[in-house]
Design a protein around this nucleic acid. Structure first.
Length: 586
RNA sequence: CGGGGCUUAGCGCAGUGGUAGCGCAUCUGUUUUGGGAGCAGAGGGUCGUGAGUUCGAAUCCCACAGCCCCGACCA
């Protein structure tokens, strides 16, 4: 490809709206352009790069017996009603009506369409297990798109769905998919990534893993152990915490004027925040108050709370708080109207003792609160139905690891892939069955596996760049080699470069040739912005000595001067070696 | 959906009531050629939209929209 003809120009100035490094370089390098919030077009550089990502992805999916399919983006209300998600998913799903006013959706994921395939095509145990995958555009009306290509409303995802006759078979396949993902990310040049245990959401089945690129700009917080293999998204990460035990003291009511926060309360009572109990309030869509009690030094993880209650939560409104008899600033369990609220106690409150807690009376708190003695033991049977205990607190850096007890640490990550156990969540609701040995209809046991194709390019740039631009792995770079011609009009410079260009292309190497009559500085700056890993520079200065310059984009070794007649063979060899760096053993 | 900011040429910006500007980019010519050069010239605008105030509005008032950031949310 001749750079002079390439659609997509580089720009010197950093676009005002771009905050993330990857966003800045993708715009400045002429990879992408924005159409509207969360909607981008891919120019040739990005399109080529993403096509390579897709190819590697297909190879890895095929390797685990995946069969590529293509399901429609456009879906009907009827199909999404079968799983119940037409109603369960809120505004995140794009909805539209066809010409006859029939309600339609733009699919944000494809469990429903794939089950549509499975229930007619996978009707015998003889066909199982089976996996179908596609690379398809997804539409999600994100409340807030952000970070350039990191969070989009329209993006490409590789989504895969596997069908099994048993949980055991699914588990086996799940770990094969896990391995395929590790291979895929290594091959695409991801360096610092991990798989962590993650939240399944409301409909996701029993377990799941997220693949996370560890970069400071990541949106997710990960909790990892400094000693063992424990790794989890903070949404599900847990810790035994450091619990102090002491003998139960008598419950006392204390006057606490104008004390509304944990910080104020612990200061007033001269105790550690970990000796207090805080109330965090949400509500359900049915106007039911939800109060989570957690040790004062900890925070509540909303996803954990949702998991325990199996309900959607929104911030609590004053009227709902008042209706349940909760007093903001002094909220406590005693005196609540349990018919109007659900209460969840974190395990830190179950196992700890003598907490300072709200008295549900403005200006008062209780001290030496002990959950069983002071609250649970006095509940009637129906009240007990309204009170749950569980793990709702966020593990933090420094807390003990649940596996080995060593200190945990926090890391930021971008989610670049996930694998989910789905079980029979969709096959049951959508009546998707196969006949087993005995001729009895059984629901398919399912797993699903996603990779954020579009998101991978910015994620890799986030972890692989310098101040001048991206440093792309050869496996996903838009071209293998970038050739600059300095002072093309002088002598045979241009002719020599073109000869090398044609010879390399004949050898199947993808070359971007800067054939513009630009100053060296401009050419180098643009080459840095495009980020192709290998660079060759033809100049009269060096050709006078019969030499050509070669360098790596990442400057891993100093630039080398090579005899002109050797450059083609040298590049062929170097390109092959470069691909080898990202290969994964069979 | 809350809070904040922004919207003037392709990009980055200046312009507080009186003929719409600068830098970069683009095009022409010329000089120059190892880290974003110089000179000379040219093209490019419904100043986000609508409605007001005014003799006159990019500028003042009102409404709306779009975009970005923080938060909420993220199946």
């Amino acid at each position: 490809m001749l750079l002079s003809k390439l659609v997509g120009r580089t720009v010197k100035e950093t676009p005002r709206d771009a905050e993330l490094v990857s966003h800045r370089f993708l715009l400045r390098g002429g990879f992408v352009r924005q159409y509207s919030a969360g909607v981008y077009g891919l120019l040739p550089l990005a399109q080529r790069s993403i096509a390579k990502i897709e190819t590697i992805c297909r190879e890895e999916m095929n390797r685990i017996e995946g069969q590529e399919v293509k399901m429609p983006c456009l879906g009907t209300k009827e199909l999404w009603d079968e799983s119940g998600r037409y109603g369960a998913i809120g505004k995140d799903m794009f909805r539209l009506n066809d010409r006859n006013d029939k309600p339609m959706v733009l699919c944000m994921t494809h469990e429903e369409p794939v089950v549509f395939f499975a229930r007619t095509e996978l009707s015998s145990y003889r066909q199982l297990p089976a996996m179908m995958y596609q690379v398809q555009t997804k539409f999600r009306d994100e409340p807030r798109p952000r970070g350039g290509l990191v969070r989009l409303r329209e993006f490409a995802m590789k989504d895969a769905y596997s069908f099994h006759t048993s949980e055991e078979d699914l588990q086996n396949y799940y770990w094969r998919a896990h391995e395929a993902y590790m291979r895929f990310f290594k091959r695409t040049g991801c360096k610092n990534f991990v798989s962590v245990m993650s939240d399944n959401g409301m409909f996701g089945g029993k377990f799941s893993h997220e693949f996370m690129m560890l970069v400071p700009s990541g949106e997710d917080t990960l909790i990892t152990c400094t000693n063992c293999d424990y790794k989890a998204n903070q949404e599900i990460a847990t810790s035994p915490f450091d619990v102090k035990y002491s003998n139960a003291q008598p419950l006392q009511e204390i006057e606490t004027p104008n004390i509304k926060t944990i910080a104020d309360l612990s200061k007033f009572l001269k105790i550690e925040p970990s000796s207090t109990c805080k109330a965090v309030m949400f509500q359900t869509k049915e106007q039911e108050l939800v109060i989570a009690f957690v040790r004062g030094d900890l925070d509540v993880v909303e996803q954990k709370l949702k998991g325990i209650l199996q309900k959607e939560l929104i911030p609590a409104k004053d009227a709902v708080i008042a209706a349940a008899g909760a007093v903001a600033g002094s909220t406590g369990p005693i005196g609540l109207n349990l018919s109007k609220c659900l209460v969840v106690f974190d395990k830190t409150i179950v196992t700890g003792s003598n907490f300072a807690i709200g008295a549900n009376k403005d200006g008062y708190h209780l001290n030496n609160f002990n959950l069983e003695r002071d609250f649970l033991s006095g509940l009637t049977d129906w009240q007990k139905q309204r009170v749950k205990t569980g793990d709702v607190a966020a593990a933090r850096a420094g807390d003990p690891c649940p596996s080995c007890g060593h200190a945990l640490q926090e890391t930021r990550g971008i989610e670049i892939g996930n694998i989910f156990h789905l079980g029979t969540r969709y096959s049951q609701s959508m009546n998707s069955t196969y006949l087993d040995h005995a001729g009895i209809a059984q629901n398919h046991v399912m797993g699903c596996y996603g990779i954020g194709i579009t998101r991978l390019l910015p994620s890799i740039i986030e972890e692989s760049h310098d101040e001048r631009g991206p440093i792309l792995p050869i496996t996903i770079a838009p071209f293998d080699v970038h050739i600059c011609i300095l002072n093309k009009k002088e002598g045979a410079t241009e002719q020599k470069a073109m000869e090398a260009y044609n010879a390399l292309r004949k050898a199947g190497i993808e070359v971007l040739l800067d054939d513009r009559d630009e100053k060296p500085g401009s050419q180098f700056a643009d080459a840095d912005l495009v980020g192709i890993p290998l660079r060759v520079i033809f100049s009269p200065r060096n050709l006078n000595e019969n030499k050509v310059e070669f360098k790596f984009r990442d400057n891993r070794v100093p630039a080398q001067l090579l005899p002109a007649e050797e450059i083609v063979d040298f590049i062929k060899k170097t390109v092959a070696e470069e691909y080898l760096r990202y290969s994964v053993d069979e």
